[in-house]
Design a protein around this nucleic acid. Structure first.
Lengths: 176, 176
DNA sequence: CACCATTATTGGACAATGCATATATAGGTG
DNA sequence: CACCTATATATGCATTGTCCAATAATGGTG
């Protein structure tokens, strides 16, 4: 549901093609929202159909044509409406915790391996987040907020790593 | 996908009806996995169809009949297989961050309200998690792991609250 | 007595997403 | 020349899950 608005939000900053949009999503909002390529195109098609975005074909003779999409007046209005609408957070889904909850059916070594593999995964995520270039602070609210979303991801990754370390320690103690 | 196995996991501990299962899910694994009532029944039906669970009808004359579900041998085997299978974490979806990312389209007061409303929400979540009774430590690995999943939620909630406090402070500074 | 909640299960409609695949062209590599 | 990668868009299909409503019996509240 939020993808529509994330797309609209990006288009409000800069008009672009589906192909380009997919890349921007991966690199700039990818840490809190992702989308499949087909989903990006479908979302764009939906926005155009509802008059929230317009499309303009740019003919390229060396490559397939570009469909550059632009947020319309109504699109921007819809975006603002969404921003002001009450926040309702969907329930958390944590497959890793779901597994851990029943993990004592496995030998302790396997439980340890589960925790270790999670540690590797989160470690990589953290590294990826920290590698994202932080734009120079320009004192603007927009800039600050975008940096904050990044730091949110970093903070949670660190929390997860801390928790993993503690849990691994407890596992050692429980099986000593 | 994990719901199948969460259900199987619960049934492996204790056989129960769909109605009961829904309540157990809400209270014991609800902090990392939730399911709609209809989804619970559909999942049970699917498990029975695949021979991973069996159902036994308990006739009740004062109420509708109960369908008590039990994990079968094959069900337990499937559960163990899932536990040992490689972990692949689905991408994060954070509608709140998606909103915050574009929130500078709104007046500062609205941004502050967005952060405050998130703070209230996470505060309530944290209170709910802390209210869940921690079973007395029995030295077992299973017990320790289940407490750990709870503490995972608590740790992340606290991290979120810290981050919110920092972000609100920055917002004040940026708009002073 | 009307209404509502609780217990208990089931089914239809439908939105969101992902995976696979198709189409078309250009440029680079072995 | 065969193959792969990048550019660029699009469609079909399956899965997962939510919302809504139906069915059915009982017990409590105003």
């Amino acid at each position: 549901m939020s993808l529509r608005y994330a797309v609209l939000g990006i288009l409000s900053i800069q008009p672009m093609s589906g192909y380009e949009l997919k890349k921007v999503i991966d690199h700039s909002v990818g840490h809190f929202w992702t989308a499949d390529q087909s989903q990006v195109y479908r979302t764009l098609a939906g926005l155009v159909e509802e008059g929230l975005a317009s499309r303009r074909t740019v003919v390229q003779d060396d490559r397939p044509n570009l469909h550059v999409h632009n947020a319309t007046e109504r699109g921007l209005a819809a975006l603002d409406e969404w921003l002001a609408s009450p926040l309702r957070t969907p329930p958390t889904r944590e497959p890793f915790l779901a597994r851990l909850f029943f993990a004592d059916r496995m030998p302790t070594e396997a439980v340890r391996e589960l925790l270790e593999s999670r540690r590797r995964e989160v470690g990589e995520q953290l590294a990826a987040l920290e590698a994202i270039a932080v734009p120079p602070a320009d004192g603007g609210v927009g800039n600050m907020l975008r940096v904050a979303t990044l730091e949110n991801g970093i903070a949670h990754a660190k929390t997860e790593l801390d928790w993993l370390a503690t849990t691994l320690r407890r596992l050692d103690r429980a099986t000593a």
